[in-house]
Structure formats: structure tokens, C-alpha cells
Write a protein that binds this DNA or RNA. Structure first.
Lengths: 353, 353
DNA sequence: TTGTAGGCGTTATCAA
DNA sequence: TTGATAACGCCTACAA
């Protein structure tokens, strides 16, 4: 059936042609690339020279069919355009490349349905998944994990390998910092309800507040986006809090803009603490924030997946990845202005309307 | 050689097993999925029912080897974390998915060498490339294009299919806007020297300035990043310009922060115009900016690639993608403060040092 | 250290 | 409308 032109390798030289040219068997050519240690030095050099000259490149697909290894992993995130995920992907992709793997990309648009679809579709062509901040129900995650090795990032399903960015302690530090500055009523501006990170952070704030004798209220957002932050800034003002910790930097930035457009300043009128450290320094004033080395986290998650694939690590391994609380320019003592407003919410409501 | 457990499909039911179970030939099972129109209705239903029951899923790799089509494209960008590229990737990946393609990701870290490497490595496993803002020399681009269909985004190599985001006219509008506000000396804060977009924008500013009788100077940056913007803010102040158009929003944001930290305000002390429209509204004040519908551009580029693959469009097709100039909050009349400083650069230098 | 040959799962040609 | 079967290109157990 030589009539069928290979569509994949437009100029594809095959292992057979190299073998013929080099006067060796196809197996020897194969070994020259896959298991050179089994071959005579001179043979290796000779074969490689011929391969180079003829422009031979091993066919990825054929190799994958034969070995069962595609040399590809998939990375699934809720939103590529979120700086945290973008930075994480960058680290993950770079590490995968360094270890000889290609990276397939999936953006689930924050919807569990699309995430499920991507997992199903991509399963056939990858060796494993790095599933970041999954919004999927536990049993669905487990179902996919059964089909293919799968590393969770910021999702805690027992008996599944995972990397958890531990931001709780840093949020607690943040609350302590606010308490020391004299704040008594603070807010936690929440992220996605289905997010493990969000639960961690909300709990950390709540517990730390209780311990320190502060009152912490919770403000919901639709999605971790600038717009969502902007949209909730009025609610924050009306609530009478003097400081807020947000789910992430993006929301915090939205809030800063929302306040600024209403004539309020940060930290003058409201102290603000974000999270992620990707864009914390790109705001003005620079955001006091819980910082995470996102790219490194992505690289570590990829390492974990590849180690699981090689069987060099337990399938239940759990990496606890650290964060740090960094004080920059958006926290200060509570303002008199909002403190007063707290006692007379009505007048403020008129102000910001 | 049944000893070799398939590593790819952990639970892989093959076409043969389904054929046996359904009492038909493997060819029929294949056709039930690939070319159902060749089959009897009842046969199709029967086969599909059996497939469903046994959990059969066509093996992607085997199909690719046989047909030469991997159902995968690669997307290569200089920096995933740049919001413009992130948004573009989002659109591209979503469109590819909708059309049944998976997307391989490559981040070249703004280096031609890594870009070249990615193109070479990935060529074996994809049907084609969307190459965004390539920093590669023309002949290298052509070499890769010869090996695999390749769509260029924001790179103008004749006789290669490409999508060009035409920002020139919008930059000219921006200059006219500044001229109307009374600015006489302006700056273009440049992006990557190897970037086609950068050349377009620089030329547009230069020409528009000449036409309107303004003086436009050029300020270089190391990379389109926040840090680079921050780093050049002092040079901008010292130059005595009263307004600047930047290569993109990220640089503009860096400049805003740099000015703010030195006690200068935007647009009070300097009018600023950015480009991309991804984060223009996330700054405060919101950035007057050349906006681009990035996701749509990514989707269009993917469409073009898939059309080229299907042969339904010429291999030299060129899409001119529009942009728009949007006035927001970072442009106003030139300040007296900097106009004065222009006449006495020394005193200002001391101020900002 | 190297060669031989069967098989990975699917598709597509040809024959029925 | 369906079946038998040779490829697709590579890898590897086994023989030499």
C-alpha cells in the first residue's frame, strides 16, 4: 500500500530508508536513538550521521503507538488569562519541555462541564494530567484519575497526588497585620465557591479574626476577575469595614479601581490585601499581598506527574507548597472616614450611590 | 506479542474486541465511527451500542498513524503571561476545540532560539502551527513553514498565510488626539525590536507626528513587561515629553507606577496611551488605549490554519484584523509642570533622582 | 553487538 | 453494504 503518501511527515524519511542507506537493520537505527547504550560507538555515530544527512526525524506518532507513550501531558486550568494560572502554566510547560514532554492546553472557562469534556477528550492523547483548581465534583475527579494519572493543584482529594499551595498561614499573618494596625472590622472578599483555595483562605481569615478578636464579614464575587472586584467595591464601602483581604490580586485590583473612581483611596480609606504575587507589584500603590512562586509551583506539579508516570513516587504523594505574606503599600491604620461611616451607614450609602 | 500491555489505554478496548462482540469485521466498526454514511442504519446502531457497552474509545494515536492526521495544532507565543498573548491563546484554543482539534502549547520566552527549538520538536506531532509574534529571522520562518502549514500572527512574511492586527491607524488617531489636546513633544515607548507590531506602531506614530507638526522621540525598552515600563519612566520624565504612546498596556502600566512612585500623576503630569485593550480598563485611571479583540483574533488565526489544512483557502491568505482607539482617562492637556521642566532639564533630573 | 520479524490499533483498498 | 488484509513507522523479544 505504498500509494498512501504519509500526510504527517511531508518530507518524512523513515527508519527503513536510513537503515538501507547506512547498511544496517531498522532495529539498529531505532536503537541508535532509543537505546544507544546497546550499540557500538562507531555504529551509533555512523547511523546518526546518515540520519542527519537524510533529514530523518523519528515519527512521534508511530513511536507512541508502539510504546504506548505519547510524550505529552495535558494542563487544564479554569482561565488562561488569569495571571496566576498563566504564570503557573509557564512554569509547568517549561519543565515539561525540559523533561522531553509536550504540553496540551485546556481552558475550562471556569465551568465544570467544559472541564469534564476536556478531560475526556484529551485522555486519549496524553499520558497524564495536571489539573489546576478543578471545579469538578470529587467523584468526577476520581473517575478521570482512574483513567489516567492526574495531579491536582489546589484541590484536596485524598489518595490522589496533589500540590497544595498553603496560603492559610499567610492569610492569618495578614489578619494579624491588620489587627496590629488597629482594624476591628474586616472583610474577606471570596473567590469561586467551588475553589479549594477559596475555602482555605476564608477559613484562615475567619479563624485568625476570632483568635484576635476582630469581626470578619464575607463578601461574595461572581468570578475571580477585575470586573467582579469592581462590582463589589460599593458593597465593601457600604459594609463599613476598614480593611479587606481578597481571594486574589485580580479582585483586589478591581476593588482599588472601584474605590478610586468613587473618590476613595487605598490604603487611606481602605486597607487591602491580595493574593498571588503575580501582579501585586504592578498596581499603584503596590499591593500588600500573599505571594506565591507560581511558576515554581507549576514546575513542581509537572515534576510530580512525570515522577508518577515513571513510578518513582507514590500515587498519593502530596506536596505542600509555601506562600509568604509581603507588606507593601496598601495597608495602614484604619481611616477615620470609614470608621465614622460605619456608625452611620446611611449617609455613606448616599455618598457612593 | 500479547505480552506487551498497552500503556496508553489502561482499559483500552480495541476495535477488534468490539468487532468480535458485535459479530462484524473490524472494518465495519471503524466505519461506524469514521464513515457512517457507508453503513446500514441498523449496523451503525448495533455497533455503537456494543462500543458503548464495552467502553470502546477509538485510539487517537493509532488513528493518527494510519491517517496521518493528529488532530492537533501548536500555538507558539513569546510569553504566556503577557495578557495580550493569554487572551489570544484563549480564543485560539477554544476555536480549535470547537473544530475538533487539540492545542499544544509553546512559550518561547521571547527568545528566537527557543522558538526555533519548539517549532522543530513540535513539528512531528502537529498538523500545523499558529506562530504568534515570531522573533525568528525570515528565512527560519520560511524553513519551518515548508515543513508544516503555519499561520503567522503579527508577522508579515510575504507568501505565507498570516493575520495582521492593524494598529497603525489607531496609533495615528492617538497622535491626533494628543495634538488636539495641545501636546507638541511626545514619545513612543518601543517594544521588542524584532516585533513587526512594534515597527508598525513606531512608524505610525512617526508619520502622524510629522504630518501634524509634532516632535516624536523614541524610547527603548528591554522587553514588553511591567518592569521595563517602570525602568524607563525616569527617562521619560527627563526627556521632557508631555505625552507618551507605548507599545502595549503592560509597559504603560509600569510607567504609571513609575511616575506615581516619583510623585507624578497621569494624566496630570503625563498623558499616556497604551495598546491591547486587555488590561487597559484594569488600571486607575483607566488607560486611553488602542484596543484589540484579542480572543477573536486568536480564533480567526486558528480558523485560517484549519482552512489551510483542509485546502479550502489559499496558502497565502492574509487577514487584516482591525483595532480601535478608545479614549479613557489617561490623556489630557499637557501640564505646565513638565513643560517648564522641558526648559530646565537639570532641575528635573535632580527631582526624580 | 546486531538482525529478524511480529505487533501496536486504525484506516482504506479491493473484492465480494 | 460488508469483509479480508495490507499498510502507517516504530519498537522489542528473541535469535544469532
Amino acid at each position: 500500500m505504498a500509494f498512501r503518501r504519509s500526510l504527517v511527515g511531508l518530507s518524512s524519511v523513515t527508519i527503513k530508508q536510513v537503515a538501507e542507506e547506512a547498511q544496517v537493520s531498522p532495529a539498529t537505527v531505532s536503537r541508535a536513538f532509543s537505546h544507544p547504550h546497546l550499540l557500538n560507538h562507531k555504529t551509533i555515530e555512523h547511523v546518526r550521521a546518515v540520519a542527519e544527512r537524510t533529514g530523518y526525524v523519528p515519527n512521534h506518532t508511530a513511536r507512541a503507538l508502539s510504546t504506548g507513550r505519547t510524550g505529552t501531558i495535558a494542563l487544564i486550568v479554569p482561565d488562561i488569562t488569569n495571571p496566576f494560572f498563566a504564570a503557573l502554566m509557564r512554569g509547568a510547560q517549561a519543565r515539561a519541555r525540559d523533561r522531553g514532554y509536550a504540553t496540551l492546553l485546556g481552558d475550562s472557562d471556569e465551568t465544570p462541564e467544559l472541564e469534564d469534556l476536556l478531560l475526556s477528550k484529551l485522555a486519549a492523547q496524553v499520558e497524564g494530567f495536571v489539573l489546576v483548581s478543578s471545579r469538578l465534583a470529587k467523584q468526577h475527579v476520581q473517575r478521570h484519575a482512574q483513567r489516567r494519572p492526574l495531579i491536582l493543584v489546589n484541590r484536596d482529594v485524598p489518595r490522589l497526588p496533589r500540590l497544595l499551595v498553603e496560603t492559610g498561614p499567610s492569610y492569618a499573618e495578614g489578619v494579624a497585620h491588620l489587627a496590629a494596625l488597629g482594624h476591628r472590622l474586616i472583610a474577606y472578599v471570596a473567590g469561586p465557591a467551588l475553589s479549594w483555595s477559596n475555602r482555605q483562605r476564608a477559613q484562615a481569615v475567619q479563624k485568625a479574626a476570632e483568635r484576635l478578636g476582630l469581626r470578619a464579614i464575607r463578601i461574595a464575587t461572581s468570578r475571580p476577575s477585575y470586573e467582579a472586584g469592581l462590582a463589589c467595591s460599593e458593597e465593601i464601602l457600604r459594609s463599613g469595614v476598614t480593611a479587606a483581604l481578597t481571594f486574589d490580586d485580580v479582585i483586589a485590583q478591581g476593588i482599588m479601581a472601584g474605590l478610586a473612581s468613587r473618590g476613595f483611596s487605598v490604603p487611606g480609606d481602605l486597607s487591602l490585601i491580595g493574593c498571588d504575587g503575580v501582579m501585586a507589584m504592578t498596581t499603584y500603590p503596590p499591593l500588600t499581598s500573599v505571594t506565591i512562586q507560581c511558576a515554581e509551583a507549576g514546575a513542581r506539579a509537572t515534576d510530580l506527574l512525570l515522577d508518577v508516570l515513571r513510578g518513582t513516587v507514590s500515587r498519593e504523594h502530596c506536596i505542600h507548597f509555601p506562600s509568604a505574606f509581603v507588606i507593601r503599600g496598601t495597608t495602614s491604620s484604619p481611616s477615620l472616614r470609614l470608621a465614622r461611616a460605619d456608625e452611620d451607614a446611611n449617609s455613606l450609602t448616599e455618598m457612593v450611590a
